[in-house]
Write a protein that binds this DNA or RNA. Sequence first.
RNA 1: GGAGGGGUGGCCGAGCGGCCUAAGGCACCAGUCUUGAAAACUGGCACGGCGCAAGUCGUCAAGGGUUCGAAUCCCUUCCCCUCCGCCA
Length: 427
Amino acid sequence: MLARELLRTSPDRVRAALAARCSDAPLERLLSADVSWREAQAELEALKADRNRGSKEVGALFASGRREEGEALRGRMAALGAKIATAEQEAATFADEVAELELTIPNLPHESVPVGPDETANRVERRWGEPPTFDFEPQAHWDLGPALGILDFERAAKISGARFAVLWGVGAALERALVTFMLDLHRGNGYREVYVPFMVNRQALVGTGQLPKFEADLFRVEGTDYFLVPTAEVPVTNLHRGEILAEETLPRRYCAYTPCFRAEAGSHGRDVRGLFRQHQFDKVELVHLTTPETSYAELDVLTRSAELVLQKLELPYRVMTLATGDMGFSAAKTHDIEVWLPGQQSYREISSCSNCEDFQARRTDLKFRPAGGGKTRHLHTLNGSGLAVGRTLIAILENYQSADGTVIVPEALRPYLGELERLAPER
RNA sequence: GGAGGGGUGGCCGAGCGGCCUAAGGCACCAGUCUUGAAAACUGGCACGGCGCAAGUCGUCAAGGGUUCGAAUCCCUUCCCCUCCGCCA
């Protein structure tokens, strides 16, 4: 949600930003509804001021025993009440329209974001590690996994459907080891671990920006008002909704493991094979709450925290800055981390780290009290994957594969797998 | 699932139709005193909207209603607590 003051004083800046995003958000409707609302509200308040004065006088007249005058004024106030009811309805109609529309306007891109319509305009920031060379034809994980007996898409389809996976044996243990490994790493790095509900209410999803626009991407639990979390960003960012945090307690860095559930609406035909795009996947999420002055330094901390996971696992990757047209709804700036996948001979997204500035803080009424005193201000929220666990598992299988189909276990993970050194076929 | 009790400013807590412009306390800020601090004393101190401003409207969990007027009365919902039942 953008500051209304910004909409009123710099509509051209907002127009330009939306154009850069290739957004068709209804800005002009919002602006005119806002004007109408303010007019109606001013009228309504004048009427209410009259009533407040009159009602007070009614009380005074009765108190001083002037019954007849009191009765007369009370009659006039009753008539005024009817006028107020009408004016109230009109103002409320405009207020609702403004509130509804402003939730559909995406965040403004930061000035450092490359302008472009789609991912082809994304900018490479840095690379780490060298894609491995093989003296054989590297396999994709959807061949490696089933051959090892640890990945089973057929039985997943039987019990659930497409875009689900079953992990067997050491595959299941590897998934669990990755979660623990990531949480331990972040926890030792200044993050506070938090365990949160996997179902959230509508308000939480509005707060982080998934609603009202993207309901089709979510799974809703029928007969309830609960949604399965599409990312831990939702419950974790909303933890302090409506609170005023002391500046001394910032920045706050939280990490959380949750499964994530996504309907993947509109992604039919994309990444249909393998583990890459699933309805359910595990993720360790990083969330920072910080001051406006430090949020871009925090974005760097956040991104590097996610990178550290890949460095410890010795997986090659590159860091991108997303272009205006490729960014998510709530983000002002986003770094994607893309890991090298030999099965596809390309870098693919494994983490997305965003500074949402005060966009989500406005929606969630999330503020801080400055250390020197003074007015409360909206704080800045950031979130990023640290990392998507399923995709990390893919990266390990494909980067650490051997000619015989076995897979070396990265050194950093061995303590979590009973010092297992190599994944070999299981029966 | 059943029966009760609650939700008031950063926190605690009074108020139960009109002097609520929400008492009092704690915390916080400024000042006096002090070598400095503490204590004491004095003053200040909720938030949001609209407006150039004067000002004005709103907010006592949320929404609706009664009334000239609602923190206060009525209805609905949500949340918290206690007890019972059930359950991992």
